[in-house]
Design a protein around this nucleic acid. Sequence first.
DNA 1: GTCTATAAAGTGATAGAC
DNA 2: GTCTATCACTTTATAGAC
Lengths: 216, 216
Amino acid sequence: MSTANPATTTGSRRMPEKRRAIARAASTVFGREGYTRASVDAIASEAGVSKRTIYNHFGDKEKLFLSVVLENAGELTEIIAGLADRHLHKIVDLEADLTAFAVDRAKAVLAAGEHYALGRTIRAEAGNIPPDVLAAWLAAGPLASQRDLADHLTRLASQDLLTLDDPDLAATHFTLLTFSGAADQSFYGAVPISDAALHTTVTTGVQAFLRLYPRP
Amino acid sequence: MSTANPATTTGSRRMPEKRRAIARAASTVFGREGYTRASVDAIASEAGVSKRTIYNHFGDKEKLFLSVVLENAGELTEIIAGLADRHLHKIVDLEADLTAFAVDRAKAVLAAGEHYALGRTIRAEAGNIPPDVLAAWLAAGPLASQRDLADHLTRLASQDLLTLDDPDLAATHFTLLTFSGAADQSFYGAVPISDAALHTTVTTGVQAFLRLYPRP
DNA sequence: GTCTATAAAGTGATAGAC
DNA sequence: GTCTATCACTTTATAGAC
């Protein structure tokens, strides 16, 4: 009955540690296996805790999933915002910078097996997720990122780097042209996409985007 | 797969009738519940046959799923080809005709709870589907439709209705701009999308497409 | 149409850290 | 002493066989 864990402070004083370990493991396993295939035992094993600990912290499997999903959406949104800021804050070459941003964003979202592969699982389970939670996930994730991108595009337009009337629509078009195709090809990360294929998809997408919203 | 017709349903000869009933039921239940949630009992019940009959015809649950998935892709491709032919064969008003086609196509693919809602399930299970089957599904489904659309666009270009260099890329852009957004909004049919929202999405998408590939 | 084996969700009693 | 993790157990559902 020894846990045989040398590194872990067996003392269970602070729960945030264990809770974070569980959340991390859950996002990994849910992202890899999907909701129904992911067993709580597997998550417990991955997290290095017992199953009961998970139930103590999260109540049941569904609540665990929903919690992790929302936390994850926020984290990924911040990562994407960081990428946008890095690539789009100061423009050197508009096409190159947009391309670099789109490639990095696609990799962040579609990176198979990573900690942010939950998007696939959420979409797969959309029909079984309470509408308010689904709305909250959309708001914290895709919609937040789209809004952030729209702000960047607005700024670029104000610098006469491109022409647009409706920033939200332009952001939507950018995502469709530079991301959705790659997401579709890779089944949202379930099947790996080669760097070459990703680059090709993004490059042609950015070119189309710039034909839609050209410099004035 | 067309054989001589057995007039009697309860005949002791071959029974494609039952097989078709099973396939139909399976596509409905798999599409509605997803792979793991769909029980073979539920499919048997929906088909009005015994579970044993299913195992006799299809071997096991996975083979049943893979069979149905491939059949379904072919059927949906034919339906979409019919829609394209109806709306795009003789153009009256290019924007209106493209819009009508895109709306009908989106409804056909995203119609929640219908017999062709399997696309969602396939995408959800992509990581667990053998790569060769996945490739076959892509070829019989999305790629075939994309190819068909590219042919239509080529013809329209030859009639000087639009300008394009790469028909396949243009077809991809059309699908991205007029379908992918709606698919994303509705989680591939899991969440219903209003007619108004669909029409708006498609209309703006067609307009963007025509700005990308304008009349010469 | 019934039966079995299995796997997984969820729970209760116990041991141990502070 | 209290609080929390752990293990063993129960229950339920389902794939597949007879």
